[in-house]
């Protein structure tokens, strides 16, 4: 009896997660693997799916690194130039602001004639950066506040320049923060649907049509074959990404201890 006394604390959570997420999702695999037509071959001939995958790939490979870099640079400047509290508050504030409440501003920017010829994906990317840099900024700021200053000083004394110090000393030292920043930015980039919906509506321009939009429309139609095949592909992608990020994080740690 004693052995299971802690179980009661987690039971509600397990029940909820199992019945709301895990079990229905596993059962729904029948639409992919036991359906009459091949869902996976179908989905790759689906024009909307191909476009959405392409856009998502471009978006992630451009804007996740940007979010991490800008977050790091801002945190670096804050820490080394001792920027005021108001700078910190201003960078963090956008993560609290609801998408719909600033959608007016972004709609007008997107509609303005100056941006007519710019690819919609980059407007979405800009909005993503604005709303999510706060997270990477906090992560790097905590990590930087926490560092052992003597290592940098030793590097400077040994004649290493600022850039050299950043790349050879600081980035490896903060690799844990770097991994966390990449994970959080990836998570946020998958949540960008909220912003595109608030600003461009349910059917955005095809250039900003991403995998989330595709899944959303399929869920609304309840066309389960395509939906589950698409969801499985995205799921596998996230799984692989997580695996590689965690592995590279571990590698860095080993390097550091050597």
């Amino acid at each position: 009896m004693k052995k299971y006394s802690m179980m009661k604390y987690i039971l509600p959570s397990i029940f909820g997660v199992a019945f709301l997420n895990l079990v229905p999702f596993i059962i729904a695999q029948k639409y992919v693997f036991f359906s009459s037509g091949g869902s996976f071959t179908d989905i790759f001939s689906n024009m909307g799916f191909i476009i959405s995958i392409k856009n998502t790939a471009v978006f992630m490979s451009v804007f996740i690194p940007l979010a991490v870099i800008i977050g790091f640079v801002t945190a670096f400047l804050t820490e080394y130039l001792k920027l005021s509290f108001w700078v910190q508050a201003a960078v963090i504030l956008p993560i609290t602001v609801p998408a719909s409440s600033v959608s007016g501003f972004f709609r007008e920017i997107a509609a303005s004639s100056a941006l007519e010829n710019i690819n919609g994906l980059f407007i979405v990317g800009f909005i993503f950066l604005w709303s999510c840099i706060g997270y990477t900024y906090i992560i790097f700021l905590i990590s930087l506040k926490n560092r052992d200053k003597s290592i940098e000083e030793a590097a400077y004394l040994d004649g290493s320049g600022t850039l050299r110090t950043i790349f050879s000393i600081m980035l490896p030292l903060h690799s844990e923060a770097l991994v966390l920043a990449v994970i959080v930015s990836t998570y946020n980039s998958l949540k960008i649907f909220r912003m595109t919906y608030a600003i461009f509506g349910e059917y955005p321009d095809y250039r900003m049509f991403m995998i989330q939009n595709f899944l959303h429309l399929k869920l609304k139609e309840l066309s389960l074959d395509t939906l589950m095949a698409g969801a499985d592909i995205l799921l596998a992608f996230i799984f692989i990404l997580l695996f590689f990020i965690l592995r590279s994080g571990r590698k860095h740690k080993i390097k550091m201890s050597l």
Binding site: V17, L20, N21, I27, A28, K191, F193, H216, M228, A231
Partner: peptide, 20 residues
Amino acid sequence: IYTFFMLLPLQITLIPNVLL
């Protein structure tokens, strides 16, 4: 498993909810 679920976008986690 919990961590993995946390990372999933809503467009995926809403599917099992709708099915349920």
